[in-house]
Amino acid sequence: MNKILDSIPTVPVAETMETIMDWLTSNLSALFSFIQNGGKNAMNFITDMLISIPPVIFILVIALIAFIATKRKFGLAIFAIVGLLFIYNQGLWEELMNTVTLVIFSSIIAIIIGIPLGILMSKSIVAENIIKPILDFMQTMPGFVYLIPAVAFFGIGVVPGVFASVIFALPPTVRFTNLGIRQVPRELVEAADSYGSTGWQKLIKVELPLAKSTMMAGINQTVLLSLSMVVIASMIGAPGLGREVLSALQRAQVGNGFVAGLSLVIFAIIVDRLTQSFNKK
């Protein structure tokens, strides 16, 4: 039996994939290095700017935003002050700012790509049938795998980190945008149509406003997923809190690993609660 199975030659999937990658890297290298350099400069600029803000002011501003966003409750604001002071106290402020930049960039790119894709998906069954399996693929593929093309295209550093994070964090925004628009009650869609709305008018005046809270839930997920890629992205040289976790792991420094991990958790909680409370308004 095995002989029959063995007589089938190995299908060259890996080789094909490599050929494609080789072709892409050699033919589009100019584009990739342009993105690499431009992205790196932009992100360094943002990080430098964040670092140049005095930590006290940064912490107070975040606390104020938290206070306003949670409708004048003190809980999140106090948590933000204590948590961010802790991170500063542990000497991880610069790493935190690097992580902030990474999360901001990958979330924004994921949202910019994700919302139009979600809209397309909600409007066309063909698009939905094509995009859905790709999203499933993106979500089930282990995050590490995205590091390989990222490195191939962009080398090491923060840009490939963002690239891998975007791929990993994109699906929820697409899915929830699609879901939100499809959930708009039929009668309201009919009302919009019956008054002679164009497709754009219907989308902007009726569908997107009604899908907003569902879409925000997806965006919240996207932000958190891109945050969870921080540690993985540090393996290809993305700076930030993830790098601290990684180096603690490599040197078996339990204490340092714990502090860096805890800082990430604090940051994640602040980001999560903030994005959620924006949705509640």
Partner: peptide
């Protein structure tokens, strides 16, 4: 035609 000649009223009101 929909804009100028006919308007619709819905069972569950269809208000936004």
């Amino acid at each position: 035609i929909r804009r100028e000649k006919m308007s619709m009223v819905f069972q569950n009101f269809g208000l936004f």
